[in-house]
């Protein structure tokens, strides 16, 4: 269980950044739901772990937050990407693609044999 969360920590960051990039400013609840939807409801997020992750990104300067009003007229805190955040998404995406591509080569059925 512990190992899994560790893996998720890294990927969760990328999911958050990527979602913010596509969707624009989002509040925490909306972000969580959106990530679940994007995964085709195959992911079940622990919402409690989302906020420390958001705080970490904010401390690192990748995102910033401000209070605003949601679609159904509720006060909520909205998160959006900063310039640094946008750069980070691009870099993290590229890294991730490379990793998956390498891994895919290992996992692909052997052609020669």
């Amino acid at each position: 269980m512990g190992d899994k969360t560790d893996v998720w920590q890294g990927t969760l960051t990328l999911m958050v950044l990527r979602t913010l990039e596509i969707m624009g400013p989002q509040h925490g609840y909306g972000l969580a739901r959106r990530i679940e939807q994007t995964s085709g409801d195959r992911l079940m997020l622990n919402y409690g772990t989302l906020y420390p992750a958001l705080l970490k990104l904010e401390q690192e300067g990748s995102i910033r937050s401000r209070w605003g009003v949601s679609d159904n007229n509720r006060r909520a805190k909205f998160y959006e990407l900063t310039k640094a955040g946008q750069r980070q998404v691009r870099k993290a995406t590229a890294d991730w693609e490379q990793t998956t591509e390498i891994l895919a080569r290992f996992l692909a059925p052997s052609e020669e044999a």
């Binding site: 925490g28 609840y29 909306g30 906020y51 949601s70 805190k77």
Partner: peptide, 17 residues
């Protein structure tokens, strides 16, 4: 307090849904 407010708003939206 700010985080408590954020959490409350999160829960409220979730309950609403």
């Amino acid at each position: 307090q700010e985080f408590a407010a954020e959490l409350e708003s999160h829960l409220a939206m979730h309950i609403e849904d």
